[in-house]
């Protein structure tokens, strides 16, 4: 199933990428081609095959509830593109999300 321009628009919005028209056109074609090549996987019969999300089996890895010294406030903000009153400043938030 080829990728449509609508798909590209939707995915670019989800991924927060302001793409140019040329980029979108190229992606439409390239993604379609890559996914067409993946056809032999997407059409594979995997009935009863469990998915693998970790190749190496480990379980219950956790740490004890012990405090580690946090960063100094200056270090925390050292790389901030914009800061004010020791907080990270961002442009207004439009969308209502969770």
């Amino acid at each position: 199933m080829p990728i449509t321009r609508k798909d590209v628009d939707h995915v670019a919005r989800l991924a927060r990428l302001a793409l140019s028209e040329e980029e979108k056109a190229a992606l439409e074609e390239q993604l379609s081609k890559i996914l067409a090549h993946a056809e032999r996987v997407t059409s594979l019969d995997t009935e009863g095959v469990p998915p693998t999300s970790h190749a190496i089996q480990l379980a219950n890895v956790a740490r004890s509830d012990d405090v580690v010294d946090p960063l100094s406030r200056d270090d925390a903000l050292a790389n901030a593109p914009a800061a004010e009153e020791h907080q990270f400043r961002v442009p207004r938030i439009l969308e209502e999300e969770e």
Binding site: I3, H10, V11, L17, L31, V41, T46, P51
Partner: peptide, 25 residues
């Protein structure tokens, strides 16, 4: 873009989910 697409609603089972099963194979 490719990764966002293959995880997005309606495509997960066909792409990412399927690939994880093929990984098992």
């Amino acid at each position: 873009m490719l990764g966002t697409y293959s995880l997005s609603a309606g495509y997960y089972d066909q792409y990412y989910g399927k690939a994880q099963k093929a990984r098992t194979l």
